[in-house]
Amino acid sequence: MDAAALFSTWLGFGLAGVGALAFAEKFVPIVPSYVLLMLLGTTAMDGTALALLVIVTVAGSVGGALAWYGFGRAVGGARVARLVARFGKYVFLRPELYQRLTDAYRNNHFWVTLFGQTVPVARVYLALPAGVLRLDLLAFTVATALGALIWNMPFLSLGYMLRSSGHDVTVVGFWTAIALIAAETLILVVVRVCRSRVMQRRALVADRG
């Protein structure tokens, strides 16, 4: 069964199938989430159906994140680190990435979780170190839901608008991916430059002191 047939099969279950796809995307990130969301958006026939898609996909995303959170909390940091080192490469989660995600929680937990849902790879696995670190569950759930809403709604809406436009969703998905990568790269460069300047200023202050 090819990907298109599998997608159609899940859609045959209605909103339950949509929710299952959003949940599974947190564990099998083979198809980029923004492409999946745009494809789902093309199935909406009106504004009400689009709103339901937003709600269900957010619920599925939160469910997947809570599953990762629960796994990390139950297994513990040492065993999770060993599992990532052994099997992470098969699911695009290398130890270096896992460590960066863990280190990100040295800052504000709520905002890291929220904005992490808008970063393609981080949005899948950020919940794992959150569970290991035993972050507040309510705050984590709320932040994940808001972040998923910010991420899901635009792509579902784009797919809905493309439904009758005649544009190829795959082509639009490709250029969307390019734009996201470019934006992320720019953000990383800006963050590194700002961090470098802060470190230089601190060094100067320390020298003067």
Rank of each mutant, 00 (worst) to 15 (best):
K89Q: 12
A122G: 03
V54W: 02
V112D: 00
Y105W: 11
V124A: 03
F115T: 03
F110T: 07
Q117K: 10
V54M: 05
V56G: 03
A104S: 15
V75E: 02
A74Y: 09
R86A: 15
W68L: 08
P32H: 00
V121W: 07
F110P: 07
F110E: 06
V62I: 13
R123M: 04
L53M: 02
F71K: 08
L36Q: 04
Q117M: 13
Y125A: 13
E25R: 07
G19H: 04
L66F: 06
Y98M: 10
Y98C: 09
Y105F: 15
E25A: 13
Q99L: 13
V121R: 03
G64L: 03
G47Q: 14
V121D: 02
T43W: 03
T42L: 05
R106F: 08
F92I: 12
V75C: 03
V112M: 03
E96N: 15
G19L: 02
P120Y: 02
F71L: 15
Y98D: 09
V31W: 00
R123K: 11
R73Y: 05
L52C: 08
N108S: 11
W68T: 04
Y125W: 15
M45V: 15
M38Y: 06
G17Y: 01
L93F: 11
G116C: 08
S61P: 12
F23G: 09
G41T: 01
K89T: 13
A59D: 08
G17D: 01
F92P: 12
A22D: 02
V31K: 00
L97F: 14
A51L: 09
F110R: 05
V112Q: 01
V56N: 02
F71E: 05
L21W: 04
G17P: 00
G116N: 08
S33K: 00
D103E: 14
I55R: 09
A74K: 10
R94H: 15
V124T: 11
L21M: 14
R100P: 10
V124H: 05
S33I: 01
G116V: 04
V31L: 01
L83S: 10
Q99Y: 11
L21V: 06
A65P: 06
A24L: 15
T113D: 01
F87R: 14
T42K: 01
A49H: 13
T57D: 01
G76R: 05
V124N: 03
G88Y: 07
N107E: 13
D46K: 07
V112H: 01
R100T: 10
G41E: 06
T102N: 11
V124L: 06
G63R: 08
A65K: 02
Y69T: 11
R100W: 10
P120I: 03
T118N: 11
Q99C: 10
Q117T: 04
S33E: 00
L40E: 02
V31P: 00
W111C: 05
S33Y: 00
V28T: 07
L50I: 04
Y90N: 10
V18F: 00
P32W: 00
A49E: 14
G63N: 11
